[in-house]
């Protein structure tokens, strides 16, 4: 889509690799650490708690009321059940860092 895509995608394995290299923990341990970070954040969010990481950003929960939607194919109206959604608000620091990419 845009040329920026050519820079590869960072995954759990890459994060574990960096932890392994910088901290000297085994690959298995490093991967377990990455998994715990994600699992604890997931857990807090699933309990209805926002997650705020200073210098990075906040994961904010929002409750949506029920509304009427439409099946785009058939045009039939269907109720969209009330739900909780999660949004990410980057910190000013992260925004500034990314804005400079141009």
């Amino acid at each position: 889509m845009d040329m920026m895509r050519s820079i590869g995608t960072l995954t759990r394995a890459d994060l574990a690799e960096t932890i392994n290299r910088k901290m000297g923990f085994s690959r298995t341990e490093s991967l377990a650490l990455v998994e715990t970070i994600l699992e604890r954040m997931c857990h807090a969010l699933s309990e209805g708690e926002n997650v705020k990481i200073s210098g990075f950003g906040s994961f904010v929960l929002r409750d949506k009321k029920e509304r009427i939607g439409r099946n785009p194919k058939t045009g039939i109206e269907v109720p969209i059940t009330p739900r909780r959604v999660m949004t990410f608000r980057a910190s000013q620091k992260l925004k500034d860092r990314i804005a400079q990419t141009g």
Binding site: M4, R5, I7, G8, T9, L10, T11, D14, L15, T18, I19, K22, M23, V34, I37, I53, G55, F56, L94, R97, I98, Q100, T101
Partner: peptide, 16 residues
């Protein structure tokens, strides 16, 4: 390291 690496990749224009 975890959050720094994510920020760095985004700053390079990459994806996580």
């Amino acid at each position: 390291i975890f959050f720094e690496e994510i920020g760095a990749r985004l700053a390079e224009g990459g994806r996580v």
